[in-house]
Each structure stands twice: as C-alpha cells, then as structure tokens.
Amino acid sequence: MTDDPDAALVFECRAGNRQAFEQLLVRYQRPIFNAAYRILNHREDATDVTQTAFLRAYEHLDRFDPNQRFFSWIYRIAVNEALDVVNGRRRGEPVVDELESDCAGPHEVAVNGQLDAGMQAALMAIKPDYRSLIVLKHVQECSYEEIAAILECPVKTVKSRLFTARQALRDVLLQRGLV
C-alpha cells in the first residue's frame, strides 16, 4: 500500500463516493490545467486536456495502482493527452498570458521583462517532449523522481533529457537575443 493520501480518495471513488472524486478534482484541476496550458499555449485545448484526463482517470479508477501516486498518474494521463493534441494539432492561434499580477516586480520586470515575455513562445519552439519536461520541472516544480514516475522512465533519463531540453530552450532564446 502507499502512504499517498489521494489513494484513500481513489478507493472511496471506486466505492461510489462521488465527493471523493470531487476532492481529487479540486486538488488537481488547477495544476493539471496549468501544465497543459504551458505545453499547448492554448486555453481551450488545455481545458479539453484537463477534462479528458480526469474522465480517463475516472473511467479507469480500477486500474489505479496504489503503489504509485495519484499525482503521477493524473499528470501522466494529462501530459500524454497534451502531447496527443500537439501531434494532431490543427489550430495555430496562440493564447496571450492573462495574469500579469503574478509576474515579477518592477525591477525584475526591467531586467527580465523581455525574457519573460518571450519565454512561452520560446517554449513552443522546442520539441513537445522537451517542453513537457521543462514545464514539469520548472513550472510545476516536480522533482526528478516525480517526473520519472510521471513519464515512467529512470531518473537518470529524466536528468539527461532535461539537460538537453534546457539546452534546446537556451539555443532558441539565444537566437532571439533574449539571453
């Protein structure tokens, strides 16, 4: 068994307690939506991915392995969904960031403003699987171990791919004169 507190909610869901599922939803809909949004740069697609991820999880609660964390499971479903959307994408319009108030203060904006402003576009210029790694590590602040569980690969692989992904992002930002 796991010490994951979410696992108990999953078991309650399996027993037909919809409020338990609602608690999981409340806990994870925002981070899942944000991860999807940063991978896709599209609000409606991110909404779709979040919905689909939770519906898939709900449908397959019986397949949830209590030895893993619900957190990793729902993230894995969402990241895979997001990558599916990227691979089959037909829409092109980007979404402008809406929340300026969460950004840095005036001094940092002066120093980092251009970099911050160009970061989402630069993310969109690197390979989607690199992008998801960077989003998980730097935006969602997942540890190597958590990313390894989400992506179902060894920690060593996460590290090496993350280094490569960061290098790719740096190259894009250098080309654009942002670092």
Binding site: R30, N34, Y37, D102, N112, V139
Partner: peptide, 18 residues
C-alpha cells in the same frame, strides 16, 4: 544564462482554469 532561464520559467504566471 541557464539560471536566468530557470528564473523566468519559475515566474510564469499561474493561469486560472475556466
């Protein structure tokens, strides 16, 4: 450069879902 990039990524705004 990498430290600035990591800092910028960490400052990305949290977006409210619908």
């Amino acid at each position: 450069q990498l430290a600035r990039i990591a800092g910028s990524l960490g400052r990305m705004a949290t977006v409210a879902p619908p």
